[in-house]
Design a protein around this nucleic acid. Structure first.
Lengths: 115, 115
DNA sequence: AATACATATGAACAGTTGCTCATATGAAAG
DNA sequence: CTTTCATATGAGCAACTGTTCATATGTATT
């Protein structure tokens, strides 16, 4: 048996409750990774563009006034986080939002900052 | 009048709609700043602790097995983002969640990663 | 096969982040 | 006033991030 810390400042009952609801290490990591993706205004702008319409990489770049490379790198991040999907049509690749959580999360964030 | 970009890949109508819903520069910045705060697993763990109970800095440090300094630095970040409040009781300072958006945002994030 | 166009990707660089360590502030008790 | 306990804060450092630049991949056209 490992020695337990003393918890001089926290009640046993609270320790128990916190341990009960605290997500596991991997969930915490994944959650943080997800929010990091929302933590950049270029990526947020891309998501807002995709709210209105599926779009190709160069279209997004044009709309946001950024280079194709910068957008492509950021789309890779969004893709890895499964926030966007893509489909190929000939030479062009169209990106679109993959689910509704994106909108809910951004809306809640917006509500918070507008207080 | 400034010269307008050509938008060779995007329809005028889409450009108009995107510009209509795109938040302003300052809002985008604030939104990204907010999500950056959620983008660290230590801060997320602190928020989960505060879901269960108001708590002093050293209590949080104890519960999470981290130094007082590390927790204090992170609480400063949470405080700046207005995600937590604090009250002094003698020598001790108790931190608590400041509103419900925190829970909604974390829940939505959790839903997304659990797909 | 050669060219053109759309996109992806790796290296490099400046800027940022999270922790540690040392120290400062601030309140209560002696 | 001095000590003690709780917290805050600044400097420093290693790790990470977002962009640019150059180049690679992949598809269609000639």
């Amino acid at each position: 048996m490992e020695p337990q810390p003393a918890y001089t400042h926290v009640h046993q009952e609270t320790v128990r409750r916190v341990n009960e609801i605290m997500p596991g290490e991997e969930e915490l990591f994944d959650l943080a990774e997800l929010f990091k993706v929302f933590g950049d205004s270029t990526r947020i702008r891309i998501l807002y563009v995709l709210f209105e319409s599926d779009m190709c990489v160069c279209g997004i770049a044009e709309l946001l006034g950024m280079t194709q490379s910068a957008i492509s790198h950021q789309l890779a991040v969004l893709k890895k986080a499964k926030l966007v999907r893509y489909r190929r049509e000939g030479k062009t690749i169209f990106y679109s939002l993959s689910d509704d959580h994106v909108r809910t999360i951004l809306d809640q964030g917006m509500e918070h900052i507008e207080e």
